[in-house]
Nucleic acid binder design. Structure first.
Lengths: 240, 240
DNA sequence: GCATATTTGTCCGTATGTATA
DNA sequence: CTATACATACGGACAAATATG
């Protein structure tokens, strides 16, 4: 009730200045999306219509429209007569999300030969960004660059729809990363594999690139699932 | 303004009686979805909030919620301050949709070996349904069974998200089928290939099944693209 | 288990901005 | 340029469900 006792509300208020163009609902959704993927709004958090509405200075109707957008992106869940909550992924979700990733990313590297110059440039940019962030100990940025690298992998398919599906899949997986205690130990080792991947793709060795990527993704999935088992030994059967 | 001059509004009114269960928005979306996939609401048609709202007796807020659902399914497009329109697919869309289909369906048959009993049952059910509809000359039902067969193919992956993506992809492709003059000539020849596919999958010959499916999808895509070239020799550059 | 307060669900009326004839 | 039609967004109202004491 007391607004100032909720830590992320103050930062939400600051965003009002940034509310510039596009529909109000979309702008509100963008703000909440950022807060969620950054981890400021942790999974399970309830998003009260009253609180956020007054904090952002938008009406309830508009806010509900923004919620709908986020529900479609699976970043929040809507429970009837209870409101919306930041999505809590369970292990099944993580496994399924990696199934989607393997399907799309592996198909992209296998079928898209040769890779276009712009696609290679995007891969390289993400890789360098990640390496730089790693040397400067910015682990959150390493994670972001990681996402961008895999987005670029999917972009090899040259399909707008596959790119869009990948975007949503990666945004969803981000929800799972919040259970990772040490982002450095998790993300950093993959940088070397990114470099290997890029070289194989650049050399046109699609088959080997495919195998490396498949192994990469299975390793990452296993690591994430194990982290889940540690952090969430038992899930509550969900309130109601 | 004069409701009776718009042919599909009358049928919409009849649906009011069917507004029984589930959330109002979902029921409205279901009605519109049916009208669209059946072809009663042709691509490009504008869906006015006022008209449909009064015709169905629901408020604009509720109607907008229904629109959101359909926008997410890509059956309609939302243009800022202009409203929603039944989606018009262009050739690029058809090509991209088939790219998604090939990626998902081919991966499903290749990786999901052996196929589960329930998955095989779903494939067989859709196949029989299609064959029966064909002998009874119900071509619209042949098309529906066709969709169901491919939905079952994607289900071989055992992934809820892939199933969902496939659902949306097939719904979107339906929009393209409206340019097909002779549904019989288009859908019927594929029934034999469906049977071949089922046998290969059942026998566990994933590699050959993959090749057959890949060829199948490329043929269908080509046929659809050619139909597009005939029916829509020149697309208007879109209003605005 | 019950009564109360809070929150969401649904809908309306209206003012404002935007696109189109 | 003006007029019209429409979508956007707000605020308020009330019912229904839920949470709290």
């Amino acid at each position: 009730m007391e607004d100032d006792r909720v830590p992320w509300l103050a930062t939400l208020r600051d965003d009002r200045a940034l509310l510039g163009r596009a529909s109000t609902a979309q702008r509100v959704a963008e703000i909440l999306r950022t807060r969620i993927t950054e981890g400021a709004l942790l999974p399970g958090t309830r998003l009260s219509e009253e609180m956020i509405g007054t904090a952002l200075g938008v009406s309830r109707n508009t806010l509900r429209e923004a919620f709908r957008l986020l529900v479609h992106e699976r970043l929040v869940v809507h429970e009837l007569n209870r409101g919306v909550f930041v999505r809590v992924l369970d292990v099944e979700d993580v496994i399924d999300l990696y199934r989607v990733r393997r399907t799309l990313e592996c198909a992209a590297v296998r079928d898209a030969r040769p890779a276009s110059a712009t696609a290679l440039a995007a891969l390289e940019a993400a890789l360098l960004e990640g390496e730089r962030a790693a040397t400067e100990q910015r682990w959150a940025d390493v994670a972001t660059a990681n996402m961008r690298f895999h987005q670029a992998i999917a972009a090899l398919a040259g399909s707008p729809r596959i790119a869009e599906i990948m975007r949503q899949t990666l945004a969803e997986i981000r929800l799972a990363f919040h259970v990772i205690a040490a982002p450095r130990a998790f993300h950093q080792p993959y940088l070397a594999r990114h470099r290997d991947l890029l070289e194989l793709i650049r050399a046109g060795d699609a088959d080997r690139a495919h195998d490396v990527l498949d192994d990469y993704l299975r390793t990452a999935e296993r690591q994430l699932v194990e982290a889940y088992a540690e952090r969430m030994p038992r899930r509550v059967p969900a309130p109601r």
